[in-house]
Each structure stands twice: as structure tokens, then as C-alpha cells.
Measured scan of single mutants.
Amino acid sequence: GIPATNLSRVAGLEKQLAIELKVKQGAENMIQTYSNGSTKDRKLLLTAQQMLQDSKTKIDIIRMQLRRALQ
């Protein structure tokens, strides 16, 4: 079985993952909103794209940590 310490770690990672998935969803929504907007929305679009990139990276890292914890 999986050690108890790993189980609480997994629960924490799953919570983090859920949050990051919401951030990713929000960033994707912002990108959709701003991509057909005016030029003043360009900065917001770039910010949203950066957020999305960061979020995807975090999600990958969390998933990797989850896999390790579940081994």
C-alpha cells in the first residue's frame, strides 16, 4: 500500500491541482475575451497568455509529484 504520509501529500497535491486547473480555465477564458478586443486589450491578452503558460507548467509539475507520491 501507500504510506499515510504520502496519502496526505496526495490530498494536498490534488487540492493544488484543482486550483491550478481553475486558474488555467480562467486564463483561457481571458484569452478568448481579449483576443478579439482592441489594442488596449493587448497587454491583458499577453498577461493572460503568460498566466496560462505558468499554469500549464505548474499542472505538469503537480502531476509529476502526484505520480511519484503514488508509486
Rank of each mutant, 00 (worst) to 15 (best):
G1L: 08
G1H: 12
I2C: 15
I2L: 09
I2W: 14
I2H: 12
I2A: 12
P3D: 11
P3C: 15
P3E: 10
P3R: 04
A4H: 08
A4Q: 13
A4R: 07
A4V: 14
T5D: 12
T5M: 10
T5Q: 10
T5S: 09
T5Y: 09
N6C: 15
N6S: 10
N6K: 07
L7K: 12
L7I: 09
L7M: 12
S8N: 09
R9V: 12
V10G: 03
V10Y: 05
V10M: 04
G12M: 15
G12E: 15
G12N: 14
G12S: 14
L13I: 02
E14L: 15
E14Y: 15
E14K: 15
E14I: 15
K15S: 05
Q16N: 04
L17G: 00
L17T: 00
L17Y: 02
A18P: 00
A18L: 09
A18E: 08
A18C: 14
I19F: 11
I19D: 11
I19R: 13
I19A: 13
E20W: 15
E20T: 05
L21P: 00
L21I: 07
K22H: 05
K22F: 05
V23H: 07
V23S: 04
V23E: 03
K24I: 07
K24A: 08
K24M: 13
K24Q: 06
Q25T: 07
G26M: 15
A27Y: 12
E28K: 04
E28L: 14
E28T: 03
N29E: 14
N29A: 13
N29M: 11
M30T: 03
M30D: 10
I31W: 02
I31F: 02
I31V: 08
Q32F: 09
Q32I: 11
T33R: 14
Y34L: 14
Y34V: 04
Y34C: 06
Y34T: 02
S35T: 12
S35G: 06
S35C: 15
N36E: 14
N36Y: 07
G37K: 06
G37F: 02
S38P: 08
T39N: 07
T39G: 09
T39V: 09
T39F: 08
T39M: 09
K40N: 08
K40Q: 12
D41I: 02
D41K: 02
D41L: 03
R42L: 13
R42T: 11
R42M: 13
K43L: 12
K43F: 11
K43E: 12
L44N: 06
L45W: 05
L45S: 01
L46Q: 10
L46R: 10
L46G: 03
L46A: 11
T47E: 14
T47G: 07
T47P: 02
A48M: 05
Q49N: 05
Q49H: 07
Q49L: 14
Q50E: 06
Q50N: 06
Q50P: 00
M51E: 05
L52E: 01
L52H: 02
L52P: 00
Q53D: 06
Q53N: 05
D54I: 08
D54E: 12
S55A: 13
S55W: 01
S55P: 00
K56Q: 12
K56L: 15
T57P: 01
T57Y: 09
T57K: 10
K58S: 03
K58G: 01
K58P: 00
I59T: 01
I59P: 00
I59M: 02
I59A: 02
I59R: 00
D60F: 14
D60N: 13
I61N: 09
I62L: 12
I62V: 02
I62K: 00
I62Y: 02
I62T: 01
I62P: 00
I62H: 01
R63S: 05
R63D: 02
R63P: 00
R63Q: 07
M64S: 08
Q65H: 06
Q65F: 05
Q65V: 03
L66S: 00
R67C: 13
R67G: 04
R67K: 08
R67S: 07
R67T: 07
R67V: 08
R67W: 08
R68E: 12
R68F: 11
R68S: 09
R68P: 01
R68N: 09
A69G: 03
L70Y: 09
L70I: 07
L70C: 10
L70M: 08
L70A: 06
Q71L: 10
Q71N: 08
Q71T: 08
